[in-house]
Design a protein around this nucleic acid. Structure first.
Length: 120
RNA sequence: GAAGCUGAUCAAGCAAUCGCUGCCUUGAGUAAUCAGGGGGGAGGAAAGUCCGGGCUCCAUAGAGCAGGAUGCCAGUUAAUGGCUGGCCGCCGUGAGGCGAGGAAUAGGGCCACAGAGACGAGUAAAUCCAUCGCAAGAUGGAUGGAUGUGAAACGCGGUAACCUCCAUCUGGAGCAAGACCAAAUAGGCAGGCGUUGAAGCUGCUCGCUGAGCCUGCGGGUAGGUUGCUUGAGCGUUUGGGUGACCAAACGCCUAGAGGAAUGAUUGCUCACGACAAAACCCGGCUUAUCGAUCAGCUUCACCU
RNA sequence: AGGGGUGUCGCCAAGUGGUAAGGCACUGGAUUUUGAUUCCAGCAUUCGUAGGUUCGAUCCCUACCACCCCUG
């Protein structure tokens, strides 16, 4: 049995209430490009992800989609190593395609940091 | 060799893994959907939306006015304000580049400053002559240029990218166009039954309240389907034309989403990768752009 | 997709082809023991950018850039 790396609907944050509850939990970690919020979730079996991309930061639809795709890809590949949390990733600064490696490392670091923040 | 001019082409490639999204197919499932396999998946500007056309709907007896656009001549095209060729003017040493380039005797307006005077007329100063006067000067006549001006000492002045005139073109809206299917709720129309009692309380009877109820139809909202990619298409060759372009033959099928799809990682190679992402479709224009290649040409320097 | 508007000093802005008003702010001076008020003076390197028409362009024309608004 090989582990699947898909990103089904059950692994996303969908409702506005879910987003605002994670924001109100106030466990945030900030990097150069990203801003990660986290909250433990009891109802779901796996980690869940929500992405916020502002129109002010990334003007065109292509840039927004690229940002979302990069974040989603990192989450997808590491979802089985992550604890049972709700994450929200917000993009603060725009980045281009050749900067995506830096962004990926930063996101992994921030995810680990937020886990430690919740444990303490 | 250096500096340029013009035209054309390309817009990193290959492999593996994990993902995204349509299409075809197989299986499971009532269905939504899920799983496997195959195959496809952004541009030269997709951009700005500046022109032109196709397509669709609405309007339309015919013609005109108004408004708008264009403006040397000829050609090309489905069409154009695009493009091509020629003439003329300007710029550049040159290859070349740029040009809304018709009419001022149809008419109106404007022409700052300077200058006597800005198109109506007319003479301020200067020179010469005559008269008067001691002189300063005054009056009359003649002169032709100078000053200043972008231009002019009156010449049928300049200006039409001021209005205008002339010639040509021009119905409007836009795929959220338009077509089809079609919940819930409200309302409409037709038929039937209803104060000789509809409907409700209520499963039945009594009782009470007291005007609607049933059936059918059509419009139409949410939503869905379609329009949606085979087209004034692309490539090669041949022929015609100075050229834009046209014709013929052969070959090819090349995104079609709907909160909006092309990414990530690893390895190798190289010019070390810019501007930038389709949304009904084409033809142009304009703008952004790391670079690379090819062809023709110009100028300068050096060598033979 | 279609349509409209704006861009002028740090801010608000006037300006109908002839060398860019005004107010606030700022700077300097005067007045005052000091400050505020008041008075005087100063402050525009391309009128968003680039071309064109014109003797001459903020103004007219064309293209572009940025921002805003409207209809669906």
């Amino acid at each position: 049995m090989n582990t699947r790396y898909t990103f089904p609907r059950s692994c996303r944050l969908l409702k506005t209430d879910e987003f605002s509850s994670v924001f109100n939990f106030r466990c945030a970690k900030t990097g150069r490009f990203l801003n990660v919020y986290a909250q433990p979730n009891v109802t779901n079996a796996s980690a869940r992800l929500g992405i916020v991309v502002g129109k002010k930061q990334l003007r065109t639809a292509v840039a927004r989609n690229l940002a979302k795709r990069v974040v989603r890809d990192v989450f997808r590949l590491h979802q089985h190593d992550l604890p049972n949390l709700d994450y929200i990733v917000r993009i603060i600064k725009p980045f281009t395609q050749d900067q995506s490696a830096i962004v990926r490392n930063e996101l992994l670091l921030l995810l680990k940091k937020s886990k430690r923040c919740l444990d303490s």
